[in-house]
Design a protein around this nucleic acid. Structure first.
Lengths: 214, 214
DNA sequence: GGTGTTATTGATCATGCGATCAATATATCG
DNA sequence: CGATATATTGATCGCATGATCAATAACACC
């Protein structure tokens, strides 16, 4: 069939630079969530945005940076979203339980894929690597604040909240990455980890049992 | 300088097929450990083996398969090595502690890189993806056997050894992947996780304290 | 309404990838 | 010693990547 509507047969309408730039950013964003960061390619973004590769290059002269920015946008949106959800819970214990349960509920596999690819691509894209470290710091800060609060209130017991936060983050990332490959028999990620956290924070068994999120 | 000794200026000595094949396999192996699976490319392997790309293609007609085999060889060697080390320990508790401590001692970052890249590349290389699942199963089996033994002896308490094994594996992978990016302030990965395991297995605090490995 | 700015394009370059194939040289076997 | 099998090569194809640049056309402004 000749339904070739890929490239603009007629020259695309001229748009305000800010608008076009936003469209290109959005195309990269969507592409990364659907097919991963490795799919964020000059030509793929152009096709997705209904535009010539040269135009993408005009707005984003370096693809490395576009990939890095796309990663940062996706992940920081997730951080903000989860941080907001968590903030609505009353106690550090509830906040920690909600954070873990939310991140392990299996509804963010697209973001997990972005993370895993970022770890790999970061070795050949220094701009991206820097963004990865930034976002890891952001996540760790969110978790650490919860742990600090819990320690202050006497709910948690640890003398190294920073390390606990790193450890929690690493555990979550690992379990999600694993689920990415093992979809099918994923089992219940998220219930056992509560016991693990209880061990790390000297909590009684069951203290972190998955809370009903409203 | 004209020290171009890349390509064989004189035709390479003709070798027994098995030997040449082994050299190519070894080149791919070394390349993956040094620069990651993504560096295992037809031309890179050829250069490393001191041979023409065409010869590599002659022995390994599909690069997908060479990459997948390289992954499997590296990881299964690690599984065997660690399994042997662990088997030398007397009790399930000591075995689990040794396993975790060994895998988190930071001396296998090259293998971790291979893992992370395999997760990412597996999405575009089905042969590799299958091998990844195989090796994950192998790791899970090793851990699960330890947990089963511990439960049988009454040392561990869990009603789902399989899930615990998956969880332990995921946690280890996540912490190692994290360390890959955050080298510098890695801190002591490996001590906190013992507390986490104690929580998962209903062990008293400190029961898994890092054992002196001989 | 003419003019200038610039958004947009098509063409093209250099690079790297996996793969194929006819030609060549070497080892082995009769 | 001659013949056969095959290890090895150089050349080349097709494809995808990021990047550059002169030419074109739409808009804004005077």
């Amino acid at each position: 069939m000749s339904s070739d509507e890929r490239m603009p047969r007629t020259r695309r309408a001229r748009k305000a630079p800010a608008e076009r730039a936003a469209e290109i950013t959005a195309a990269a964003h969507a592409l990364a969530l659907e097919d991963g960061l490795a799919a964020v390619t000059l030509r793929a973004v152009a096709t997705r945005a209904g535009v010539t590769p040269a135009l993408v290059a005009h707005y984003r002269p370096a693809m490395d940076a576009l990939v890095a920015d796309t990663f940062a946008a996706i992940v920081s949106a997730e951080v903000d979203e989860v941080a907001a959800l968590v903030a609505s819970r009353p106690t550090p214990t509830a906040r920690l339980g909600t954070l873990v349960a939310t991140l392990l509920d299996g509804e963010r596999d697209d973001v997990t894929l972005v993370w895993v690819e970022a770890w790999a691509l970061g070795r050949r894209n220094e701009t991206l690597a820097a963004r990865v470290r930034e976002q890891m710091d952001a996540w760790q800060a969110v978790i650490r604040e919860i742990v600090d609060d819990g320690v202050a209130e006497g709910a948690f017991d640890t003398d190294d909240a920073a390390s606990v936060a790193w450890q929690v983050l690493g555990m979550i990332d690992g379990l999600n990455a694993q689920a990415l490959v093992r979809w099918g028999d994923a089992g219940d990620r998220g219930s056992l980890i509560m016991s693990a956290l209880e061990g790390m924070l000297a909590l009684p068994r069951g203290a972190l049992a998955t809370p009903a999120v409203e």
